[in-house]
């Protein structure tokens, strides 16, 4: 059982890290050096996607488009490193829950917007909501892993002992 948990643990970390690094990368505007100043660029396509949701106030659109991809890449790197994994998983789950709520509200309002999730031309649909909900599962596993280990790990040990 310990091996099963170990495999599930690393599989969850790798899958989540891969998804978050890729999803951050496609939305990241890049870095430009202008007049010796290094600046973070914003992906105009992602700005357009956030505006399409008609949910965030205009003042929040640009900061979201600029920093959300960086947050996703950073989370991916943390998940890959295995450092403070439960905290990384909590932030990941929180972010995914936020995405699911926003997608559901937008779809419920009948707005035809681009999801802006993994590619920048992906319409919001029940499929995109279901996809994010499935991605939430490995994050929840990582959060509740110690509890699951103590419960199922012990029961297997005790049944073996019996």
């Amino acid at each position: 059982m310990t091996i099963t948990f170990r495999i599930l643990h690393w599989l969850s970390c790798l899958v989540l890290a891969g998804i978050f690094i890729y999803s951050g990368y496609v939305k990241f505007g890049g870095v430009t050096i202008i007049n010796r100043n290094i600046q973070l660029d914003t992906s105009l396509q992602f700005v357009q996607a956030i505006e399409g949701y008609k949910l965030a106030p205009q003042a929040m659109v640009w900061p979201l488009a600029k920093y959300l991809p960086i947050l996703e890449i950073a989370l991916g790197i943390f998940l890959l490193s295995g450092w403070k994994i439960r905290y990384s998983a909590m932030v990941t789950a929180g972010l995914l829950l936020f995405f699911i709520v926003v997608l559901t509200i937008t779809y419920g309002r009948g707005i035809e917007a681009d999801c802006g999730c993994f590619s920048l031309s992906d319409k919001i649909s029940p499929k995109t909501i279901a996809r994010d909900s499935i991605i939430l599962l490995p994050a929840l596993f990582l959060i509740f892993e110690p509890r699951l280990r103590s419960r199922f790990g012990n029961s297997v040990v005790s049944s073996n002992a019996a």
Binding site: G29, T32, D41, L44, Q45, Q48, S121
Partner: peptide, 10 residues
């Protein structure tokens, strides 16, 4: 701009 390219659809 600055040797970079950004594609925007729509």
């Amino acid at each position: 701009y600055a040797g970079k390219e950004q594609k925007v659809e729509g």
